[in-house]
Design a protein around this nucleic acid. Structure first.
Length: 786
DNA sequence: GAGTTTGAAACT
DNA sequence: CAGTTTCAAACTC
């Protein structure tokens, strides 16, 4: 495993580098440094295809944030998984960072917990760190529930060059991960794997890690497979930022005021995949951000391969008397949605509330600003009032789900004590039936949209973050989710489980992320929190995710074709909108039920589809077997008459070859097929023609315009010029380009010479007309001069 | 734009 | 699982 070089270490801020993790790691016994006896042994050499991310020591808390490399075999979908520290790690932590540099195991529990990791656009990795260190003896309420080992924090991502990065807690690296309450020995993991253009972030909820009742608890997050591994050697300049934001902590807070809300670290560039835990991933280009806080965690950051930005903020500090110790919201970014991880800090006592409040004052609101060319950003908002969000980790699925559950006890939610709401407009969180009151939404901002997050201080009041545009993700109220829960593993991409609106009781809505993103409301985040979030550094996140091999930016920029459904109510897979997990919008459908107004029907339809086909909403085009094409139809086509050379064929439509799994007849969609080659050639030629023609016309127009500009004095002085005076050398050349292009087109089309000549003459005529038109326009537009 | 063709989805 | 029907997109005229 590669160890970060001294020079790289020197580049890192002390707050980052001087982390307990480092100290722990350095002082770990030799056996710790040795290859850990893990259930998933890390290969010494990581094949290119495996894309095993390098591991970076992040935080050697006794809660055992452990980094594990992604299992290449298990990776089936490209994307980014973000493994975040379980809330349990966060629970009981305080804002104090004084625990840094402790080396004893007991002290390791004082390590600052990283509540969230953000990998925004420009390859920023932002990590919200849970502030505070629990009691060294580990008996603090928050930490008591956690076993020293068994929890892993894995943050893996691919740099722009595809280099993976991971954040790990090395001292537990060797320890078999065990989750408290589960006892199954399965390591609780939080993984973030950034794939080429398909980042997916999964956050395992604290409750899950803590061994809550959910069946999905202790499920190990699956590593996502990367579709492609970009050549490392071609790594281009990249800016990666590591921002560590300290989360609020209401427990054991010794000096909350001293804690700076945001810790910025530097990014190190990783050069090689690494398996050992102590490896630090280093980014190609290092960018530093002002650092306010001393961090206890050492974080190695690797830029995403694509300029994607993912911001994930999760912090959970929950009251010990709360059934759910911590909550982390896994958010799906599969379709370019922004990811929002809600951080909870439970203030269960007035003193704690005061602590949270004090911390909130120190924390700057997070303001997200997307500049030009920044496709997307993510907003991270820590919550103070725990909405009891549970992550639902779906094995084998690259989509992750969030379940919001009703607060079980009102004792843990008396936020009123800490509700020093400075903003009257913000409604205090309702402790009772809070889930109905607590709304969380993840704003998803499309590219080129500038978003701003209202930097209102978050106390216990709901925080609303407004962005200018959709897409956005909202956690919607719903009803009757439980009936769908058995199929959670196959929910449509980005499905979000949300409390039912108007129900008062907890219900769930299954909202595919695309649906959510289409909600035509101003993107906002409504969160209850006793803390503000840092805006010290603008968080720009770009989730350039891919769908079926297409980047999110492509998918989002390209307008979806409106459906024309008439009978299916857009609740069958016949409907592309529905099949793609989107609401119908500007469609031509009749009697459409694929909207929020027919939520129950839609939920039933989703369930029905999943019953019929558990993978109904999964992309059909995925990565093939080893050695096969990167993209292949997962099911294969069944064409009979089209020869698989028409868009009827799903393979052809996806611009992929038919494979052995296809059941087509008379298939001509294979590599050597002359028909296919002909079609491809024609298509390419047509595309080139269009481009050339457009370029030629643009050039002609530009030159004519330029000529007009330059000849205006002459026109003025001459009292007007005839059109031929505009035929300068430049115009003539541009005209010739047009004529040559026309000739090439005729030749490509195998047109007879006579036809070709005619086409050329016609083009010439058009050119002349344009010249004349410009000339006349020049006269009319310049009456004074002319 | 209307009608036809096509193949996936849905149904039996 | 196979055959049939339904459906909406793709295609043709």
């Amino acid at each position: 495993m590669d160890v970060v070089s001294p020079e790289l270490n020197s580049l890192l801020p002390d707050e980052i580098m001087d982390t307990e993790a480092i100290a722990m790691e350095e002082e770990l016994p030799a056996e710790h440094l040795a290859a850990p006896p893990r259930s998933e042994p890390e290969p010494a050499q990581v094949p290119m295809e495996t894309e095993v991310p390098e591991i970076v020591s992040l935080c050697p808390a006794t809660t055992s944030m452990q980094i594990t490399s992604s299992d290449a075999q298990s990776s089936t979908s490209s994307g980014t998984q973000l493994l975040l520290a379980p809330s349990g790690l966060i629970a009981g932590t305080t804002t104090t960072t004084a625990s840094a540099k402790t080396t004893s195991p007991a002290v390791t529990q004082n390590l600052t917990k990283i509540s969230s990791v953000t990998v925004p656009a420009n390859h920023q990795l932002i990590i919200n760190k849970v502030a505070g260190a629990p009691a060294a003896d580990g008996k603090s309420p928050g930490t008591a529930v956690l076993k020293p080992e068994g929890q892993k924090l894995l943050v893996a991502g691919l740099s722009k060059t595809g280099q993976p990065i991971m954040l790990a807690l090395p001292h537990t690296w060797n320890k078999p991960a065990t989750t408290q309450g589960t006892g199954d020995g399965k390591p609780t993991q939080i993984k973030m794997v950034t794939t080429v253009g398909k980042p997916v972030i999964a956050v395992s909820s604290a409750s899950q890690l803590m061994g809550t009742s959910t069946t999905l608890q202790a499920q190990q997050l699956k590593t996502l497979q990367l579709t492609k591994k970009p050549p490392v050697s071609t790594a281009g300049p990249m800016i990666t930022k590591l921002i560590i934001t300290k989360a609020l902590n209401n427990k054991g807070l010794s000096s909350p005021a001293s804690v700076a809300p945001v810790v910025t670290g530097r990014v190190v560039t990783q050069s090689t995949p690494v398996t050992p835990p102590r490896t630090i991933t280093i980014g190609e280009t290092i960018s530093t951000v002002p650092q306010n806080t001393s961090g206890n965690s050492k974080v190695a950051i690797s830029p995403l391969k694509s300029p994607s930005k993912l911001t994930v903020v999760s912090v959970a500090s929950q009251s010990p008397n709360s059934p759910q110790k911590s909550v982390t919201l896994p958010l799906n970014v599969a379709l370019g949605q922004q990811i929002l991880t809600v951080q909870q800090s439970a203030a269960t006592s007035p003193a704690k509330a005061g602590t949270s409040q004090a911390t909130a004052q120190t924390v700057k609101p997070v303001q997200t600003v997307a500049g030009v060319g920044t496709p997307q950003f993510k907003t991270i908002i820590p919550l103070t009032t725990p909405p009891n969000v549970q992550q639902i980790q779906v094995p084998g699925s690259r989509f992750h789900y969030v379940r919001l559950v009703t607060a079980t006890t009102g004792s843990s939610t008396p936020q009123s004590g800490s509700s020093t709401n400075t903003n009257p407009s913000i409604q205090p969180a309702k402790p009772v039936m809070m889930n109905a009151a607590v709304r969380m939404s993840v704003p998803i901002v499309p590219a080129q949209t500038v978003k701003q997050v209202v930097p209102k201080p978050l106390t216990s009041a709901a925080q609303v973050v407004t962005t200018s545009q959709t897409p956005q993700r909202l956690i919607m109220p719903a009803t009757h989710l439980p009936q769908i829960q058995p199929n959670l593993t196959n929910l449509p991409p980005g499905t979000v489980l949300a409390p039912a609106h108007g129900s008062g009781n907890m219900g769930y809505a299954v909202l595919p992320a695309p649906y959510v993103t289409q909600i035509p409301q101003p993107a906002f985040v409504t969160l209850t929190s006793s803390s503000t979030f840092s805006t010290a550094t603008p968080i720009q996140t770009q989730a350039r995710l891919s769908l079926n091999g297409l980047s999110t930016s492509e998918a989002t920029s390209r307008p979806r074709k409106p459906c024309n459904c008439t009978r299916s109510q857009c609740l069958k897979l016949y409907c592309d909108c529905f099949a793609n997990g989107e609401f119908c919008n500007n469609c031509n459908c009749v009697n459409c039920f694929n909207n929020l107004d027919h939520e129950s029907e839609r939920l039933k339809a989703i369930k029905a589809c999943l019953d019929r086909n558990p993978v109904a909403f999964k992309p059909k085009i995925g990565k093939g077997k080893e050695g096969e094409s990167d993209r292949r139809h997962s099911k294969g086509c069944n064409c009979k008459k089209s020869g698989c050379l028409k868009n009827y064929c799903e393979c052809y439509e996806a611009k992929i070859m038919c494979s052995s799994i296809c059941k087509c007849m008379g298939c001509k969609n294979f590599e050597e097929s002359p028909e296919r080659k002909t079609l491809m050639h024609l298509a390419d030629a047509a595309e080139v023609r269009v481009q050339q023609q457009t370029a030629a016309k643009t050039k002609l127009s530009s030159q004519i315009s330029d000529l007009l500009t330059r000849t205006t004095p002459a026109v003025t002085s001459g009292g007007g010029k005839l059109p031929y005076t505009f035929v300068t050398k430049e115009v003539a050349e541009a005209t010739c380009d047009c004529l040559l292009e026309q000739a090439e087109q005729a030749e490509l089309a195998n047109q007879p010479q006579a036809v070709a000549e005619r086409l050329i003459l016609e083009e010439f005529g058009r050119c002349l007309r344009r010249i004349i038109s410009f000339a006349g326009k020049a006269k009319t537009d310049c009456p004074i001069n002319c």
